[in-house]
């Protein structure tokens, strides 16, 4: 007897990506640069978040031809994004056999009420979250990996830090609370009770939690790792910088050696210009992606 697409198989791939960096790429050349720099996976997309933000309009799943080209170029896992709630885009990505689907707030949401029922897919999903309630709701819908939302395309780590700290704080509360208080806590957090029970049993989230949304430097990656995340997504931070290959390598090394400041000092030097950042309070409210 052999079973595909079980939760263990889905979350297992995310476990294998721990301590690694997943990089946004828009071309086969960028995908190759990412793989050669030690990325554990690439995220294939049409435009990086910073360009989506700058150009506006409706952001959708990437062209299947482009995704397939990237899949044949690299041997590491290839992820791709679908709009929140857009199950037909997800069906297309599953037919292409991408390795992970990101139901992502970076793209324009297709459904303002519901997320995708991720249990019906064999390919695993990763979803963004700002707090524990959101993370637990996505897990209940079948997400096998969680990432902070941060604020994508800004090169500003502050929102990812906020989301990671909040999730840590809420997990500590769940672990410390007496069992009889858990149901009320579930109600207040908007977190399904059974996932909170799982957290208590395992002492942590039942799936891997990566940092994402604004990571642009090796120090950003190291900070997020020290805050307890399991790995790092870098969106615009690499290919919007002046020397992507060198920056990509530096962020990979910083993620592995996150608690060794000497190595961090070495890898943080001579990287060229980082992407230009955006202050969160200068973004018009309707352009904030994390609330999607």
């Amino acid at each position: 007897m052999m079973e595909r697409g079980t939760f263990r198989v889905k979350s297992g791939l995310a476990e294998m990506l721990k301590g690694g960096v997943i990089m946004d790429v828009t071309t086969t050349e960028q995908a190759k640069i990412a793989e050669d720099a030690g990325a554990v996976a690439v995220m294939a997309l049409e435009r990086v978040p910073a360009d989506i933000r700058a150009q506006g309009g409706v952001a959708r799943m990437a062209d299947p031809t482009k995704i397939k080209e990237i899949m044949t170029t690299v041997s590491i896992p290839v992820m791709a994004k679908v709009r929140i709630g857009h199950f037909a885009e997800a069906q297309i990505l599953e037919a292409l056999e991408v390795d992970y689907i990101d139901e992502s707030e970076v793209l324009t949401p297709a459904d303002q009420q519901y997320h995708i029922d991720k249990w019906v897919f064999t390919v695993p999903f990763v979803c963004g979250a700002r707090d524990l309630g959101e993370a637990c709701r996505r897990i209940t819908e079948g997400a096998a990996m969680i990432r902070t939302k941060g604020e994508p395309g800004t090169g500003n780590v502050v929102e990812a830090v906020k989301h990671m700290r909040l999730m840590n704080e809420q997990i500590r509360e769940v672990l410390a609370a007496p069992e009889e208080e858990l149901m009320q806590m579930a109600k207040e957090m908007g977190a399904p009770h059974e996932i909170l029970l799982l957290i208590r049993r395992e002492g942590k989230l039942p799936v891997v939690n990566f940092a994402a949304g604004g990571i642009a430097t090796p120090a950003d990656a190291a900070m997020m790792m020290q805050l307890g995340c399991d790995g790092v997504f870098v969106g615009s931070g690499i290919f919007k910088s002046s020397d992507p290959a060198v920056r990509a390598q530096a962020i990979v090394r910083a993620t592995t050696h996150y608690n060794d400041p000497k190595i961090l000092a070495e890898v943080a030097a001579n990287l060229g210009e980082p992407m230009v950042g955006i202050n969160i309070d200068e973004i018009p409210p309707h352009e904030i992606m994390q609330v999607r």
């Binding site: 896992p77 599953e94 991408v98 390795d99």
Partner: peptide
């Protein structure tokens, strides 16, 4: 690829 991953 991942879609072929399995347990047994």
């Amino acid at each position: 690829r991942q879609i072929e991953s399995f347990e047994t």
